[in-house]
Amino acid sequence: MSLRYLASRLTQGIIVLWIAFTLSFFLLYLLPGDPVITMLGAGGELQNFDPAEVERLRSEFNLDQPLPVQYLLALVAVLRLDFGTSIQTGTPVTEAIASSLPSTIGLAAVALVIALVTGAAIAIGATLTRRPWLRDALAALPGLGVALPTFWVGLMLLQVFSFRFPIFPAIGTGTPTAVILPAVTLAIPLSAIIAQILFRALQNAWIQPYVTTYTASGYSRLRLLLRQALPVAVLPALTMSGVLFGQVLAGSVVVENVFSRQGLGRLAQTAVTGQDIPLVQGIVLFAAAVFVLVNLATDLIYPVLDPRLKAATRNVPADATRTDHEGVRA
C-alpha cells in the first residue's frame, strides 16, 4: 500500500466532510428564512420576541455579518471542533454529543454483535443447506427483517417481554438487562442487511469456477464454504460497513425513543423537535465523520485482504500482465 493511496483516500474523506459542512450550513442557516425566528419559535412564544434577544442570537450566530463572512467564520470554528452551543440547553454541541455517546455506543456494540452472529448464521446456513425449503426460508428472513418498521418491532417486544411476560424492564438504562430489548430491536434490521449482503456474496462465490475446482478435489461442502467461499465473500460485505454504521445511528434515534433511553439518537430527536439548529448540524456532521472514518478504515484494510487489489497497485511480474481474453473459444 502506497502513501499516495493513503493520501488520496484521506483527501477524499476531507472533501466529503467539507461538502457536508457546506451543505448543512446552507440548508440550516439560509434556506427557510430567519433561523433565529425558527429557533425562538420552537421555544413556544410564537408572537412576541424580545428584540434584544433576537439581536443577541443574531450576533452570536454571526447572522448580522455578510454571507461569505458567516460561512468562513463557521468553517473556522468547525475546524477548531467548535460547533457552537445548543439553543435549548446552552451546553456546547461537542459536549452534548460526547456525553450522550457512551450509552449509544454500548447499545450499538451489543446490537452489532447480535446482528453479526445472526446475520452470518442465516447467510451461511442458507448457503450450506441442501434442503430447498430450508434454504428458501432462511433466504426469505432478511427480506422480512428489513421490511418491519423498527419502532413497531420495539413496541411489540416491549408488549410481549415487558408487559405480558415481565422478563425485561420496559424503559431506562438502569439494569444491564435493560439493553437486551433495545439491542435486539436495533439488531433486526442490521442482521437483515448483513445476512443479505453476505448471502449474496456467498452465492456469488459459490458459483465461481474455483468452487468447482475444489469440489472436484474432494473438499467437503463445509470446508469449501468456510475456507474457500467465505474469505472471498466477506470482501464485498466489508465495503458495506460504512452504511452499517449509518444504519446503527439512524436506528438509535427510533430505538432510544421507544425504550426511553438516553443517547445520541435521543439527542438528535430532541434537537429536531426543538429546532436546535447548531445541535442538529453537529450531529449530522458527526454522523458524516463516522461514515468517512469507517470507509477510510475499510479502504485501508481491503488491499491487505484482497491480493487482486494489491497486484493492481504494485508492480506485477511481467508474465502475469498478459491477458488471455482474445483466444477464448466456446
Partner: peptide, 23 residues
C-alpha cells in the same frame, strides 16, 4: 467426496477464476 481428488481428478477450463483469488 471420497473418490474425488484421490480417485478421479478434474482439470477445469481456467476462465480466469478456476483458482481461489485470495489464496
Amino acid at each position: 467426496q471420497r473418490i474425488r481428488g484421490t480417485g478421479i481428478a478434474y482439470v477445469p477450463q481456467d476462465a480466469g477464476a478456476g483458482l481461489n483469488p485470495v489464496r
